[in-house]
């Protein structure tokens, strides 16, 4: 997951710093064509962190299917981030989240942030923060009493981003190929 803070590689020295943050809105079916490639970019980034996250050949098609499925699911949240200024009406980011029940633990409802992706030129201080707080607010509205985030273990940028905002690892997913 790529967030806008905590990594020196994410800020440019020249230009762009005057742009206003993105405009966030619920996605519709009409957005899927624009959102799917962003989701794929995020998955390709994840592939960089671990070969067990190698993306499948039909990833583009599957991304569209997943988004279509999400939009039909009342427990899913899909947000489209639009640019501002000259990039108004261009979709520059995507957020996917879901509310799940926790059968054994309390709080009983968990809001999982599955994917956050922003195009590089729109990553800057405050934008990631804004996406996270808006998503958290919506998850809470959907009944979540705890918010979690999934990202590759090796993604230290994401780990730092969430750690700074009070997140800590509570569960681990270990893998090996068989």
């Amino acid at each position: 997951m790529t967030a806008s803070k905590g990594h020196s590689g994410e800020t440019t020295r020249t230009g762009h710093d005057t742009t206003a943050p993105v405009h966030l809105r619920p996605a519709t079916a009409a957005d899927i064509a624009a959102l799917a490639p962003l989701l794929v970019r995020l998955k390709r980034l994840n592939e960089e962190f671990d070969p067990l996250l190698k993306v499948r050949d039909d990833v583009e098609e599957r991304a569209r299917e997943v988004l279509t499925h999400d939009l039909a699911n009342p427990k899913s949240i899909v947000l489209a981030a639009e640019g501002t200024g000259p990039d108004r009406a261009k979709i520059v980011g995507v957020v996917r989240a879901q509310v799940r029940e926790r059968p054994f633990y309390a709080p009983t409802m968990e809001g999982v942030i599955l994917d956050i992706y922003l195009l590089p030129l729109h990553r800057r201080h405050g934008v990631g923060e804004y996406l996270l707080s808006e998503t958290t607010r919506l998850l809470k509205e959907h009944g979540a009493g705890i918010v979690t985030a999934e990202f590759p273990t090796q993604n230290e940028i994401a780990a730092r981003f969430y750690a700074k905002r009070g997140f800590r690892p509570i569960s681990a997913l270990h893998a090996r190929s068989i």
């Binding site: 790529t2 590689g9 960089e48 590089p120 030129l121």
Partner: peptide
């Protein structure tokens, strides 16, 4: 350029090139 397919990979592997891609 800033939206090239491999630009996120550069962010991780080569932040110097990534910064130039954005700038």
């Amino acid at each position: 350029h800033a939206e090239r397919e491999d630009v996120d990979e550069l962010m991780i592997r080569n932040p110097w090139k990534y910064r130039l891609a954005l700038a």
